[in-house]
Design a protein around this nucleic acid. Structure first.
Lengths: 199, 199
DNA sequence: GGTTCGATGTTGGTTAAGCGACGGAAGGGC
DNA sequence: GCCCTTCCGTCGCTTAACCAACATCGAACC
């Protein structure tokens, strides 16, 4: 009964309610961390009724996922001014975004409780996947199994970014991006790690 | 059908809508001034439907009055930590608040268009009146004609404040407050401007 | 003059938000 | 064990916000 999501148009009340909830959640996250945060608290801060919360999110975890995804999508949006297509430049931006975002979690967002990092990381990978898939499906020669391609590549990008973010004093993000880019685009064969099977 | 104002309880949606409208109006006022501001613009900024606007304010002028009154009441609230009663200390705070608020209009709020100052000043006087009247009616020996007393005194305070705010390099606000306070409390007779009629 | 355009208030029907209450689960005290 | 509190997730009813119109007005503009 709520929110014809598929349509582009969306009831302004719905948009406003979600924005208020997201803002409130972000504020409380910054103030008190995630542990012990109640739905009541979030709803109150957002000036939204608690029951209305459940009309928009199944539970607090879903809101959490939504907020993380949105934050990472914003990070991506800042780095992807060019057209939405599958090209080296964009993939490189994806890698750098993953690096910076994941590294940022180690410093700025040194949460009281690190137990939520896996959840955040899962969202990052998922957003990489979604972005890649949208590019693949918009490309001229779209493969039949775009999902598998997107999945593999997104995990590759994610893995590179995560590894780099954990690696103190390693290579620069640019270097990582360049190397990972080669593997992702040309494959293992192209990266000279294995002999090319058909050469 | 909207907003049982008299009751203390007030639908949270109503409170939120009014706050959004007030905030939007203040923002637009700071950005573009008052001239040429449309209801449509205000409603849009507040993420409120234009029709809903009219469920809360008769027109833009009423919102304007509301905003000004609220700002001045806030100014008063900051200066009146003591109990709400008719005493020298509180009246003095009233005078000083009027002085500062009206003087502030000359500098910080140097609107593109000064034509709205009379409207603002009218609100200041009205708020002074309301505050005084509430004190008078709560006092032990409340006179029958509290309205006339409050009216006279509020205009006196307002006049003193306005004159001071216009007077460059005159007496300090404290001095004005002291002198005006004497006139207001002891009357012309007490201030020695005229001989006391019954002495 | 007449025409176009945009802002203003207003209306009735639709839809989402608020409220109060409910049962259930999780913890804390004793 | 048992009670007490607090949060959770859900439900039916009420109420306010949204929307798409509408007539009206005033300011260009020709």
């Amino acid at each position: 009964m709520l929110a014809r999501e598929t349509e582009g148009r969306l009831d302004p009340r719905v948009r406003r309610t979600r924005e208020l909830l997201v803002r409130a959640f972000n504020e409380l996250l910054a103030e008190k961390g995630h542990a012990g945060l109640t739905v009541q608290e979030i709803a109150e801060r957002a000036t939204i009724n608690r029951a209305t919360f459940y009309a928009h999110f199944r539970d607090q975890h879903e809101l959490f996922d939504h907020v993380i995804s949105e934050a990472f999508r914003e990070e991506l949006g800042r780095r992807l001014p060019s057209s939405p297509e599958l090209c080296e430049e964009n993939i490189r931006a994806l890698i750098l975004a993953a690096c910076d975002y994941l590294a940022g979690l180690n410093t700025a967002c040194s949460w009281k409780d690190r137990q939520f990092r896996p959840l955040i990381e899962a969202r990052v990978q998922h957003e990489l996947y979604e972005m890649l898939l949208s590019w693949i499906e918009a490309s001229p020669q779209r493969p039949a199994n775009g999902e598998i391609v997107a999945c593999t590549a997104s995990w590759a990008i994610f893995g590179a970014g995560l590894q780099w973010s954990r690696d103190e004093a390693g290579a620069s993000a640019d270097e990582v991006a360049d190397q990972a880019l080669r593997v992702i685009i040309d494959g293992l064969a192209g990266s000279a790690a294995v002999p090319t099977p058909r050469a």
